[in-house]
Design a binder for these strands. Structure first.
Lengths: 193, 193
DNA sequence: TGCAAGGCTTGCAGTCTCTGCAAGAGTTGC
DNA sequence: GCAACTCTTGCAGAGACTGCAAGCCTTGCA
């Protein structure tokens, strides 16, 4: 049975996705500059004001629903055993995050197409979250026993996130399973490029 | 002797830096939301319209002058010998770029402070260039002989840029020389984290 | 010195993103 | 069927950004 609370959340999520689809379609068909908030909300049959109840910014509606919020990722990291090597923790969490994205990839071809045409979109839309989570991850890595200097910690973090993003993009492009690609990516990082 | 052309360019660059300083100072003293284009240009003694002759966006004025444009970096990469291993080419170019930044770091303490408080600023301001240059680098890496698959190429690119950024930030924080840190970073990438 | 060409600065008007507020409509719980 | 709650919307306003055209200033040259 579904509680009213859950019901509301589900319908909200569905509406978000519906608006996203409309927005991306407009951007693909008529160009990015045609995808104004006014145009999107008209096509999605909501008021412009309501658009901003669903999305914090216009760009938000033009990129894929994120599979994780910064807090989620940090929570996953903190739950890892204290004595696990940091590299393994990062690998495990990135894998979890990558796999968790899968169900959201149902109808993402248009998103990929838009991402190819305007690669700066995702970066801009997620800049704040990205920066935040990388900063927190860096702090966490440094606090772990066995930290090997500032530069090493930084490389661990940028490497891990880079590996995840690379694996995801490669998977989207070639169709290979993300999990394997993630393992390969981390193996490359571990053993050297 | 200085040609009139050069003279104009120099004065333009000086003015850019002057406006930058003013903008960052306001953001640090009164908060980011107080740093409106109107406030900045008033403090810099130019009209708001002129502000946009110098900067493509407000955020542009709040981050450090970039040491390279995408074309510069690609040019550096293309000039590398054809038979050099890609990894070495990337290492050499990133080193060149890192070192070239040095003269621009004369009075960057305020920029660092702002960057610490709002880490998303630089990402957002440089998103388009960053995305563009990484895409082009990826294409170039893939076209080089000895390419080892899509995932490997992606990791080379994100790893190289990550190494450069990590080394620069670490150097800014600890005062260690960038060149050494860059070598260390690439050694870590090469031999494994 | 004086003038023509080209660059720089500016104001203006307009578009677009985004926000706070408050009114109204629809839902839910009892 | 009423009270509390949530959701949608309009409105007004701030702030980023752009194209255009007028005026100013510098530079090159006679």
């Amino acid at each position: 049975m579904e509680s009213p609370q859950e019901r509301r959340e589900r319908r909200r999520a569905e509406k978000r996705q519906a608006v996203r689809r409309v927005a991306v379609r407009i951007a693909l068909d008529d160009g990015l500059e045609a995808a104004t908030v006014e145009a999107i909300s008209a096509a999605a049959d909501i008021s412009p004001r309501t658009f901003f109840n669903y999305f914090g910014s216009k760009e938000d509606a033009l990129v894929m629903e994120p599979a994780w919020r910064p807090e989620d990722l940090m929570e996953l990291l903190r739950r890892r055993p204290e004595d696990e090597p940091v590299f393994r923790s990062l690998q495990a969490v990135m894998k979890e995050v990558g796999v968790r994205s899968l169900p959201l990839w149902a109808d993402m071809q248009p998103f990929m197409e838009l991402q190819n045409r305007h690669p700066e979109l995702a970066v801009r839309a997620r800049a704040a979250d990205q920066a935040k989570v990388m900063e927190m991850t860096l702090a966490l890595v440094r606090s772990r026993p066995g930290a090997r200097g500032g530069l090493h910690a930084r490389l661990l973090v940028v490497g891990s996130f880079g590996a995840m993003i690379s694996a995801v993009q490669e998977s989207l492009e070639t169709g290979e399973p993300v999990e394997e690609l993630l393992d390969q990516a981390f193996a490359l990082l571990e053993q050297g490029l």
